[in-house]
Design a protein around this nucleic acid. Structure first.
Lengths: 255, 255
DNA sequence: CGCCTTCTTGAAGGATCTCAAGAAGGGTGG
DNA sequence: CCACCCTTCTTGAGATCCTTCAAGAAGGCG
């Protein structure tokens, strides 16, 4: 496969440069990272708990969930990752995972050796800064999930999650009409929102009845984006997406 | 005040070196950071939303909460910070706060200029690594909070939070008997656990009736630590506290 | 065509919330 | 040292959102 020969880091670089300012040389260093492509079947753990890892995983395609569980073994998805995310970038400084990673749909990932990432980070401190910043965006999302799960009722909670995923997938939007592909089951949505699958089902029906979403075979259409945002109390600021060039940061100066 | 003349960074350094390996010179650089001490009254926001910050806050004494809110203005505490924590360390790479910081009790904080932290991080890459790692521990805690709020009933949830705070405050423990000072009100506990103050009250009574805790004037005594841990489904691994020296990390080699 | 996953529906039960009011505790001033 | 006040804690009763259990319908894939 082409992937195996020439891994494509452009989506990951785009993600970094959307928030951080990198020079051409620094960008090239990211693009030159090595990686080993791998297809992962749906519902398969590709990073288990308890085993120290020596690589991070870049998502090429599909949706990936980060899992924790309570004492009874009930699972909670604590993060959903989309293509372009390095979903366990934190493992570069924290190689003992505290959560497992599982493909929610069929997914393609690129395993990137820690050694290579660390070498680039050591050589280019501003890349290290960008990676750290990227982790902090994930943390801001996590913080918002605590609010979502803790302080919003089912309908608002699901609407909020859908808005977040739509924004992060930055899919086709024409005016106020939004269409995106979210290949997850209602049961997985329940694990992410801390609801039961039954209640997720009823809540989605209610959102559909209100004309806020259409849901056919994992393709979601939002006829009125404004209305869904408002129903989900969604304010995209925490995602730090689509920053203007002058809002992007660079603390370390060129060396 | 003595604090103003010679800020004490030893607790913060201890926190860093409990997980990261720093040379004597690197440690000295942390200890030499400048800082401006400040007393904060209970319930006062000392880092508001919406204003870009140019310093981070080290907690010297007291308990600090990180706040978010939903659309109706109901507040959710997304993190509780204890002395020795640099509670908004992430602001070094992300200076626009996505959450506000409020003192939950009377607190003493040290405001540390970003410029100084960045200078040390630039000069000593391994310090940058340690700071990044420290942020990742906070993220692991956040992740556990999603599970706590999402997948545990009130009694388990509160027991878990108490175990976490006891461990992070690393207070006096004699055998299986544990005593620690948690100067927060039941209403604040409710904001952290996503329950109502009324239900927190009833749940605490139930924990007391079971002999799992004693609670007098914000001082909590845990007669049987094992029992509370088990009732709260608490596994301290995610806190990365008390690592053995050989478990501490240093990725960047001495330059 | 048949099987397995996912989605859908109904009815009953329970954990937590809401509202309301009273008791206790800690600090302050006379 | 007592009186007062404001915060915090406590208690009761009714309402509700969400869960649980159970079973049937629909959809995708070999």
């Amino acid at each position: 496969m082409a992937h195996l020969n020439r891994p494509n880091f452009q989506p990951f670089l785009d993600r970094l440069t959307s928030r951080s300012v990198l020079t051409a040389e620094e960008q090239q260093a990211v693009l030159n990272l090595p990686g080993h492509a791998e297809q992962v079947q749906s519902n398969r753990d590709f990073v288990p708990l308890g085993t120290r890892v020596d690589h991070a995983c870049l998502i090429v395609a599909g949706i990936v969930g980060r899992f924790d569980q309570n004492g009874s073994g009930e699972r909670q998805i604590t993060a959903m990752h989309v293509p372009g995310d390095m979903c366990d970038l934190h493992s570069v400084v924290q190689p003992l995972p505290t959560s497992a990673l599982q493909a929610l749909s069929v997914a393609t990932i690129l395993r990137v050796p820690h050694a290579a990432i660390r070498a680039v980070a050591a050589r280019y401190p501003v890349v290290a800064e960008a990676l750290w910043r990227d982790c902090m965006v994930d943390a801001a999302i996590l913080s918002e999930w605590v609010v979502n799960v803790g302080r919003r009722d089912a309908k608002t909670r699901i609407a909020h999650l859908l808005c977040e995923m739509a924004t992060r997938l930055h899919d086709t939007r024409s005016g106020n009409d939004f269409v995106f592909d979210l290949p997850v089951t209602q049961a997985q949505l329940a694990e992410a929102t801390a609801l039961t699958a039954v209640h997720v089902n009823r809540t989605l029906q209610s959102l559909r009845a209100d004309g806020l979403i259409e849901w056919h075979q994992r393709i979601i259409r939002v006829p009125q984006w404004d209305a869904l945002m408002s129903r989900g109390e969604f304010d995209p600021a925490y995602l730090q997406a689509r920053l203007l060039p002058e809002q992007r940061l660079r603390i370390v100066q060129a060396s």
